[in-house]
Simulated scan of single mutants.
Amino acid sequence: MRLPDFEAWAVFAKVVETGSFGRAAADLGLSKGTVSKAVGRLETRIGARLFNRTSRKLALTEAGQAAKASAARILAEGEAAEALATAGAAEPRGLVRLAAPMTFGVMHVAPLLPAFLGEHPAVSVDLHLSDAVVDLVGGGFDIGLRIAALPDSSLRARRLCAIRRSLVATPAYLDREGRPAHPDDLARHACLGYAYLPTPDRWRFVDGAGTEAVIVPGGQLRANNAEALAPALRAGLGLALQPDFMIWDDLEAGRLERVLPGWSPPPIALHLVTPPGDPRPARVTALIGYLVQRLAQAPWADPHGRAEPRLLKN
């Protein structure tokens, strides 16, 4: 089954509306010959004339009279659809579903959204927070923020910045229990564990020479959310591997101290990921641009992962 010749029916409706092939051609930005050929295609297709033409007059035939109302609706609906699509492209509107890690989302994504929503009153955001890896495609998400070393996948990923992770503790804890000089020294320390590390039962460190050390952390507390470790960490109950975006202020204020500064855990980064496919709706493009710009301005968001907090003097 062939589709109706919608373009030709729209041209026919414009001819009826203007009463002239020439005026219809001018309104549509087409040549008079193109308009005439479009009407001719319809007449051939339906097997009947739509107009009686004379040198001075253009009159609808019975077939033309029967078709003019439907053709006018085709033209009007087409113009309305195009206007709506154009307006949608120019002004972002609709729902964006965004997935982010729990603590990072609460601390650094949620505070950015009020300004974005104020700038785009026709856009709404459904923010989903979880430390578990979310299936963007299966979950119907438009954007995901992930802090990890990303595996290969069909998702489109944009690296925003390195995320430095550090082994930290309070100065009081370190004064009491001693400052480790090598990862092996952690065997006699209380280690607060994060369950969503790639290897939560093994902590890996590498020094500047590329030497690797692997230790088995032991302590009284383990959680599947890094923020849940913060009270015990700040109370001086042990050491923890924490990302800079969580502890930057504590490091600046001297409430926490980096341990084993010559050793680093495997590198990770903040990525913005989206499902495959183009084009993106304007609302998604707008939120991506906003998040990229704002997150890149964060003090811990060093592109090379070398940013150091400034220690505040008392």
Rank of each mutant, 00 (worst) to 15 (best):
P111E: 03
A157D: 10
S130H: 06
P217D: 01
W263F: 13
Y173S: 03
P198L: 00
L60W: 06
L98E: 07
I247G: 02
L312P: 00
P243N: 04
L295I: 09
R306W: 12
S55T: 14
V15C: 01
P281L: 02
L98V: 10
R97A: 15
G208Q: 10
T61K: 12
L291R: 00
A269P: 11
G64N: 01
A38N: 02
A100Y: 06
P171D: 02
P200V: 05
I163H: 07
I215Q: 00
L312M: 11
P92T: 00
G64Y: 04
A226W: 02
E7S: 09
G94R: 08
L129C: 07
G40D: 08
R306Q: 15
T86W: 01
R159T: 12
V35D: 01
G22W: 04
P4R: 07
L112Y: 03
A83P: 11
V134E: 00
I147A: 01
R165Y: 12
E227F: 13
R49D: 09
A253T: 15
P243W: 07
T54Y: 07
I288K: 13
G78L: 05
A67M: 14
D5W: 03
D249P: 05
V137A: 14
I74W: 06
S31N: 01
A301T: 10
G94V: 06
S70H: 07
K37T: 11
A148Y: 01
V15S: 01
L28C: 08
G254I: 10
R164A: 15
P299F: 03
Y173V: 08
A63Y: 03
S166G: 07
D250H: 11
G22Q: 06
A72G: 12
Q220M: 09
L256S: 06
R97L: 08
P266G: 06
E77L: 10
A59C: 06
N52Q: 14
M107D: 14
P279F: 08
I247R: 02
D207G: 06
P243M: 03
F116K: 05
G29N: 05
V292G: 00
